[in-house]
Each structure stands twice: as structure tokens, then as C-alpha cells.
Write a protein that binds this DNA or RNA. Structure first.
Lengths: 160, 160
DNA sequence: CAAACTCGGATTGATGTTGTCCGAGTTCAA
DNA sequence: TTGAACTCGGACAACATCAATCCGAGTTTG
């Protein structure tokens, strides 16, 4: 029930990529966050497979956001990294054992399953309501707009 | 990000234990659901450690609910099995790398962290709003009250 | 055209979950 | 009182998934 640590990196990378038009290599993003370059590359590949970023190969290649930040929700990123399978899988215990219910009585999901689905839906709705643009606005409000500006400038021409 | 399969068994066991005053052994609960006896015992131990059920040892021992079903939420069971650690752990990437923010600028949780916390809170709130008594009522409404009655009777004197 | 730089997937090690086992303790009955 | 059977409880392996790494395929650029 623990979320993959790569999700945090992926979200931070998406925030940093806002406002940058040139492709940014995975190695640059890794140095910015001081994390493993190879492993962050794996997360960026997952984002590319999900269509959130576009990968550009070649000498001055890297990753670019495919959509405006306002159209990328945190849920999109989480699903791209963690996968689309629901967190709770019902094994239909009511159809097993000596008092098994008949399959025709189990057309609707069982009560336990429905409670879990509702909770997961609430979770997804909350994440879907926050976009990368919202995160950018929050950071600007908290720490000032110059923080992200410096990050974007560093991504274009990294020093060190 | 996948929920432990033992959670499903634990919730079903709590539902089955409602209305039963005598202790029910783990072996009986395992046969009812046709699952591994030893592994279900592990889940029941976790419930006992969390104080949701009381374990009675000896010849006619077993497990009994400690509280009325209306006072046991699904969240209580999930936390007892999965643990109380939050699903998202912030590693404070903003304080790392060449553009690291100073610690005094990080007194409040970062925007990413807050979004994740809000989603997890929504998930917990949804689970906390469903009690075991609610699940019992739902099953009674869906399949009729005799289904759970037969289960309770079987738990007291199992055949086969 | 060649060289350098990029992404992409296949490979290995660490961590947590799933499943199993046997010993400590308690209750019941003789 | 004594014994025996039955219970829980924690310690023990097997499996799967996550974390981290490496090298090859492809592209751009000079």
C-alpha cells in the first residue's frame, strides 16, 4: 500500500519542465534533484509511454511536455508510473467455501468491494482535481515566482 | 500501490463475526472463506494487536469482536492490516541538488506533498465513513437477512 | 559521413508481501 | 490435580515487486 518513490520524482520533473520549450535530458533532471540518473530515466520513459511527455533523441534531445500544464493532472502522472490497475482486487470470497453464493446472486459487486471502490474513486477524484499548473501556482505563491524561474534557467544551461 | 490481499479477508471476517458471541477459531474462518488457515491467522493477529478483536485461547477459544459493529470502520481494519504509515513519503527533493532551497523556506509541506496528503485524506475519510454495521446492512439488503444468519450459524457449529 | 549524444529496453540486487511452520499458553474434562 | 487437546503467537522460507544499473539502437549535428 506504499506509493512508488518514483512518482514524487516524476511530478517534480513535470513541474520543472513547465515553461521550458527546449528538450531537457534525463541526466539534467537527475542532477537537478540529485537522484539516480538511470532510475529517473525509467520514470521518464513511463511518462513518455503514457503520452505525457515527448522524447526527442539525438545530440540536443531530451523530454518535453506534450500538453499545457493545466491539462496534466497529478492523477495522470500517478497512473503513468504506478499503472492503471485498481489498488483493491476483489477475489469473490463469497463464492468460495461451504456456504458459497451462487454466481447469479453475485451480479453486483459485493459490499466490501463497493466500499473500496468508492474510497479509491475519492482518491482519484482528489488527484484529478490538481493539475501541474496548479502546483506551479502554489509554488509561486509559497516561495515566490523567481524560484521556478531559476530552475527553468538552470535546466536550459546547467552549471556544475 | 496495491492493497494487501489480506485486507479483503479481514473485512469479510469482521462482517461474519457480527452477532456471534462465542469465540470463533481462525481455522473455522479460514474454512468458511476457503483460504489459507495459517495466513488468515496472521491477519487476525494483526486485528488483535490493533484492538479490533479479542483473542481467547484454550480449547474453545478463538476471536471475538471487541466493539459493536457500528463502531468499527473499514478504515480501522485497513490500517490494522496495512499499517499506519502514509502511502506517500516526501523525500524533500526541493532541498537537494544545486538549487536546493534553504531549510527555513521549507517549514510548510511542499505543493506535491500537500496534493498527495489531500488525496490520501479523501481516501481515508471515505473508508472511515463505512462501518462494519453498514456492510452488514448492505449485505442484508442485497441478498436477504438469511444469508448472514446462515453464516453465523455455521460459524458456531461448522459442518464439514 | 562520422562522431557524439540521446533515449529505450533487458539485467541484477534489495525490499516487502505471501504463505508456512512449530512452540508457548490456556482451557476443559477426567 | 493432572493431563491432554486445542488455541493463539511469533519466528521461518518462497515469491513477487520495487529500486537501481548497464549497454545497445537511433538520431541529430557539425
Amino acid at each position: 500500500m506504499k506509493m512508488s518513490g518514483g512518482v514524487e520524482w516524476a511530478v517534480h520533473c513535470c513541474v520543472a519542465l513547465t515553461g521550458v520549450t527546449e528538450p531537457v535530458p534525463a541526466a539534467t533532471l537527475a542532477r537537478l534533484n540529485d537522484v539516480s540518473m538511470s532510475y529517473l530515466a525509467k520514470q521518464m520513459q513511463a511518462l513518455a509511454r503514457a503520452g505525457l511527455v515527448r522524447s526527442v533523441q539525438g545530440k540536443s534531445g531530451g523530454y518535453v511536455l506534450t500538453r499545457p500544464a493545466a491539462e496534466i493532472s497529478v492523477l495522470d502522472i500517478v497512473l503513468a508510473i504506478e499503472g492503471r490497475e485498481p489498488q483493491f482486487v476483489c477475489t469473490e470470497v463469497r463464492q468460495r467455501g461451504p456456504l458459497a453464493a451462487s454466481p447469479e446472486d453475485c451480479l453486483r459487486a459485493c459490499a466490501v468491494h463497493r466500499a473500496m471502490l468508492a474510497a479509491e474513486q475519492a482518491w482519484r477524484t482528489s488527484l484529478a482535481g490538481v493539475s501541474v499548473a496548479d502546483l506551479v501556482a502554489t509554488v509561486d505563491r509559497d516561495s515566490g515566482p523567481d524560484v521556478l524561474s531559476r530552475v527553468r534557467g538552470w535546466l536550459v544551461s546547467p552549471t556544475s
